[in-house]
């Protein structure tokens, strides 16, 4: 394929934005499914979670998927920044008065801001858990697995940390609120029968996934030892 097939035109940039975005949505489901195990704070639950964490960082197929995931996150961010810069250049003089609320949702015109916040959150989030799991000195549990559970429980025992997660999940919700359905439109999927369905699923996804994610730190804070 030619250069234009990668990032050459405004449309190919959108295709990649949509494809990586939808892949990240799939990842959110997998990540959430795994992390909901944290709601079981019994000693057996802790061992189970640590075994799961070990599996996720060592099983070859999951490892391969994780490299695709890192690439998708970076590419989605890079593509998004490129789009935002070009869009800013497309309107060098701003309007003195702009009634944005009349024709578009707040989320749809603030995707770059929301995305940047999510990216900053990801750096903090990965530093605390992903980095610690891979290279940190975190000790082992009764089964000899790295004790990630204790690291998570310690982090979510701090009120400011829980608050940060809850706020950031709200940010993610707004990003998904526009992003989910927008990805389908970018890929040319717009049909009078299916588009209303896609939009409804998008709203459901954008609300339920971040709420469940936010539930984990809140739950662990409330039930902290």
């Amino acid at each position: 394929m030619s250069r234009s097939a990668i990032l050459g035109s405004s449309l190919t940039k959108k295709y990649w934005m949509a494809l990586t975005g939808l892949f990240l949505c799939l990842f959110l489901i997998a990540h959430l499914a795994g992390n909901l195990q944290l709601l079981d704070m019994s000693p057996e639950g802790q061992l189970k979670f640590n075994a799961y964490a070990k599996f996720m960082t060592t099983f070859p197929l999951v490892k391969a998927a994780s490299y695709l995931l890192y690439f998708s996150i970076l590419f989605h961010a890079f593509d998004g920044i490129l789009i935002a810069i070009q869009n800013r250049k497309a309107r060098p003089v701003r309007y003195a008065k702009e009634n944005a609320g009349a024709n578009r949702s707040w989320a749809s015109s603030n995707m770059a801001l929301l995305g940047t916040l999510v990216l900053v959150f990801l750096v903090i989030h990965m530093k605390h858990f992903w980095f610690e799991m891979h290279w940190g000195d975190i000790g082992t549990d009764a089964d000899g697995n790295k004790d990630l559970y204790t690291v998570v429980a310690a982090a979510f025992g701090q009120s400011w940390y829980v608050a940060l997660y809850v706020v950031m999940m709200a940010v993610l919700a707004f990003h998904l609120l526009h992003g989910f359905q927008s990805a389908f439109q970018s890929l040319g999927i717009n049909h009078p029968r299916y588009t209303p369905m896609i939009k409804n699923v998008g709203v459901f996804f954008a609300v339920v996934v971040p709420v469940l994610f936010a539930l984990i730190p809140v739950w662990m804070f409330v039930h902290r030892a």
């Binding site: 959108k14 070009q86 250049k89 749809s108």
Partner: peptide, 10 residues
């Protein structure tokens, strides 16, 4: 020099 569509629908 037009910008990139982000499906705001405006």
């Amino acid at each position: 020099g037009f910008g990139n569509c982000s499906n705001t629908g405006a």
